[in-house]
Structures are given as structure tokens and as C-alpha cells.
């Protein structure tokens, strides 16, 4: 775990994170998903510009009611709220558990197959495009090329 984020700040973040992402719809809250821990470190490494303003927000929020503080940011300080919400959400969706629950495999490799003819060629949809199109406009009239199908 990255030592530059103190345990105290992580505790503050846990409260704020749950104010933004509570448990519900079969998904864990942000803190239960591990947002204040390693996931936060990975998020901040991916988006370094979040670190400094987030730390300032966490310091300011210490001792405040997390829900009340989050609402205050949302209502009055949209830039700070964006820093907080991006950090929390970015970390949350790095969780393998959360990804599994929402059915997200990540931007994974998924080789394509060109073996089957596209549906739009089989069902006549594209032929209809060709039939109804007036042709391209070059002079004042229209020109046409041969049908692809």
C-alpha cells in the first residue's frame, strides 16, 4: 500500500466514499469493495493529478460528517466534487468483485470472427439502403455506382 496516503486519510476517504457509493442493488459499498486501500493507490497512480487536490479534500473533511461534507462539495464546489467522485469511482471499478457483479470483463482482448456473413447482408437491410439512395451528388444531378450485393 502506498505510504504517501496515511491511514487517517484512508479512514476519512472510507466515509466519503460510502456517501457516494452505498451498498445497493447487490453491489458492495465503496469501502466494502476496498476503495480506501490498494484500489485508491492504483487510481492515483493512473491519474496523478488527482492526488494533491484529493489529499487536501480529505484533510478538510477530517472530523466532519461524511455525508454532509460530500453534499456540500456537490452543491458548492463542483471541481472538488469531481476530484472526489473520480477518485472513488475510478477505484471502485478497479475492483474485480465489482466488475464481476456488473458483468464487465474490462477492455479485454476479444478476437473477431469474419467467418459468418454479416446479418445486414443476409436480411436485405443493406440492399434496401442501396435501392432507396439517390446516388452521390457531383454535378447538379446524381450519379450511381453498381450495387455491392
Amino acid at each position: 500500500m502506498n505510504s504517501s496516503v496515511s491511514e487517517k486519510r484512508r479512514r476519512v476517504l472510507a466515509g466519503l466514499a460510502d456517501a457516494l457509493i452505498a451498498e445497493g442493488s447487490g453491489k458492495p459499498s465503496a469501502s466494502a469493495a476496498g476503495v480506501p486501500g490498494e484500489l485508491l493507490d492504483r487510481c492515483l497512480e493512473a491519474v496523478p493529478s488527482l492526488r494533491s487536490p484529493l489529499m487536501a479534500i480529505l484533510d478538510e473533511a477530517e472530523g466532519r460528517d461524511p455525508d454532509e461534507f460530500a453534499r456540500e462539495l456537490y452543491a458548492r464546489r463542483p471541481e472538488d466534487f469531481t476530484v472526489l467522485s473520480t477518485s472513488v469511482m475510478g477505484a471502485y471499478y478497479l475492483s474485480p468483485e465489482v466488475r464481476k457483479l456488473i458483468g464487465y470483463p474490462g477492455q479485454a482482448a476479444n478476437p473477431l470472427s469474419l467467418a459468418a456473413a454479416p446479418e445486414y447482408l443476409e436480411n436485405g437491410m443493406l440492399e434496401r439502403v442501396y435501392e432507396r439512395h439517390p446516388g452521390y451528388r457531383e454535378q447538379q444531378g446524381r450519379e450511381r455506382q453498381p450495387s455491392p450485393t
Binding site: 452521390y136 453498381p146 455491392p148
Partner: peptide, 30 residues
């Protein structure tokens, strides 16, 4: 190839699959 909005064009590779989202959008246009 064959888009009637253009004169004849040639491409070296078959088109990428348009996927479920492409088909959904195409149904609306159709």
C-alpha cells in the same frame, strides 16, 4: 465497398463486425 453515397471505392480488408450496437442503430435507420 458499394456505398451509393460515393463513387466506387476499394478497401483491402473486410469490414469490422458492426456488433449489437451497430445492428440496433441500423434497425432504426432501416
Amino acid at each position: 465497398s458499394g456505398d451509393p453515397a460515393f463513387p466506387e471505392l476499394a478497401y483491402p480488408n473486410p469490414p469490422m463486425p458492426i456488433g449489437r450496437s451497430g445492428m440496433a442503430a441500423a434497425r432504426g435507420m432501416d
